[in-house]
Design a protein around this nucleic acid. Structure first.
Lengths: 208, 208, 208, 208
DNA sequence: TATGAATGAGGATTCATTCAT
DNA sequence: TATGAATGAATCCTCATTCAT
């Protein structure tokens, strides 16, 4: 094991090569998923597109499923990074403003890579088992719920668990349908309108 | 000597046999989809379960896709029958009552055959092309929109197209998540609560 | 199912076709095993040599293992047919004569298809699980033991189970080594000598 | 500056390291063969178990086959060491005693590492080409034959080549079957009985 | 028209071996 | 010399679909 990092996090050539291989595989998988769909995403195809041998694919991913899982994970990470950043100060905001922010964040999350998001949402249940991506993910649910707890005084509802379920489901579905099924890309106006309507819907409900 | 039946819907023996074969194939497909999942639903398996030879299967359905499409169609028909019956007199009802009915109908639709509904919802994008089942279906959207037009005086919103989109999406998602992802079966209480919340959410929104 | 056998065991065309396919697969497997060894006997190769598609192979044999098992079975059947025929009247024979017959039968069994016998003996433990071919097979052991019981008065040994083990093992090994490892084919003289020696060895032992 | 050790078998550090690597590879191969079977013994697995990189494995062994061959060789060496030691003074012994010793030695050889012996016996024909391990090995045959020559006066047989073949084959087979196929381990009584019977069988034969 | 034997492209995965570092 | 990432031919097997009977 020739590993002589002199200072700090200096990766060895070997580590970098591995990392590059892994990345290109995940990337290739995502690209094929988006452009050709789940059924065309054979492991041989993925390796080919990644410019890597099929053997290397299996060196890093024990199965096709694990590759798809990695794509899901990566996408999820990207989304949650956006979400966390965006919601950092939501706790201090009044209801109306906060809800608008939640809706806006949902829209943004969907716009990170809408096509990938769609494929993952639609075709990935098949991969099952690793129930990621569950209705905008548990973390989202938590964030929302936590907000509601802090904003209890502004709410006209008691059961925060139920309210969170209703709101998160609603926001997710609205955004999902709007972004993914209507036309190709939302104009800014449409996006604004979407946020307005979604926020009004949810806010009204929460105020009771 | 053409053999068109003289009176009424009296099918020839042959026609009846065909019909039975087709039915058993669709039924077998649905059963396998539900019990064993999309991946186990090979055409050979379907033919076997239907008690029909693989040759006959291809006599009636040109492809696996067309078989799945038939299942979707059938499920849709059943749902829409319920929906139409239930919404027959909705036009005359006041907003609150009508919306409750819409939500209740959505729940009922999901409860017709929840497992089949779920499989179809999850796996069918794969069959793609024939975008049936699209967000509670166009017909649903129409029915809702038509209702809104008649109830314009009670509404606090102008853009009925937009409002319909928001409401139908919301109702569908809420129901879908509640029925398909939470536990196995909803208790009556839970169902009532779901209808209450859904109706309140949408009604509030529509009143503006 | 168009099955109209008019008289007696007249197989339908279909049945005959299936049968032919199965036969050619087993035959091809045996041939490859003999000519190229276990490792070259890939399912695709077998199908090719059988003049059958790989799909058909899997229609009749669920796995590669099952194919090899069929070869073993077939070979075993052939051997046991010879053995049974040859040993039909052994019960009435005096010890010396009977033992000679046992040895002779073992030699014959090995000469039915020596190369196949060798491959099966050497390479098939791998297929394990289906422990056929076990030390000249249980049936052989039984036949021998049964004979000993009837000939007890001529024997100088008490423990017939033990004696059978010793004799059957010995006869089998002697024959096996002689037929399979020495040169290509045994001359008649060599065979005679083998029988003589084997019989003398075993007879001496049994007489005590 | 060539570095040949001046005195005695003093290996350089490098040579020792090489030796250690080679040993651990052979040992790992044997262990995997025994514990997991031939099919699990991939070169990568072997290297891993040996705590050596796959690259190093190929530095010392040109192929998987050569690795297995080394295991066979080593096992053979160990057996022959036992055998030679045990048979050192057999030449002076009378027939009965000598034969008992031969049988006992065969049993001991099998008990050195029965599981390894079995795997090698069963799977190694596959590795073919290097027909080691052939029926208790040529050396055994020689030893036995040499004994017979010295003991000619006690024998009732003429053809010592033939007699040796018969005896060695018989002893090997008896031992092999008894040790490897009957239950897990032989009790001392069973072993004694095995030696008794084997010796009686062979002695009787040799005395004519 | 019904049957089911046959097809074969294509898919996931393994593993002995090579070679740049 | 040691390392381990990379290779890719080869393997077993599935399944939608065709077609002779």
């Amino acid at each position: 094991m020739p590993r002589k990092p002199l200072i700090g996090p200096r990766k060895t050539a070997t580590q970098e090569r591995s990392r590059a291989t892994v990345d290109s595989l995940v990337e290739a998988t995502a690209r094929i998923l988006v452009k050709e769909g789940f059924d065309k995403a054979s492991t041989n195809r993925i390796a080919e597109v990644a410019g890597v041998s099929i053997g290397s694919l299996y060196q890093y991913f024990p199965s096709k499923e694990s590759l798809v899982a990695a794509v899901v994970e990566r996408h999820q990470q990207e989304i949650m990074q956006t979400v966390r950043a965006e919601l950092a100060k939501v706790q201090e905001e009044p209801l109306e403003q906060a809800i608008r922010r939640f809706v806006a964040v949902a829209v943004q999350a969907h716009r990170l890579d809408p096509k990938l998001h769609r494929v993952l949402a639609e075709q990935i249940p098949r991969v099952g088992k690793l129930e990621k991506l569950e209705t905008f993910s548990r973390e989202n649910f938590s964030l929302f719920r936590t907000y509601l707890e802090g904003a209890r005084h502004e709410l006209g509802v008691d059961d925060l668990e139920l309210a969170s379920f209703v709101c998160v489901t609603t926001i997710e579905a609205l955004t999902h349908n709007a972004v993914l099924h209507h036309g190709k890309a939302l104009t800014n106006d449409q996006m604004q309108m979407l946020i307005d309507e979604g926020a009004r819907l949810v806010t009204g409900y929460l105020k009771g």
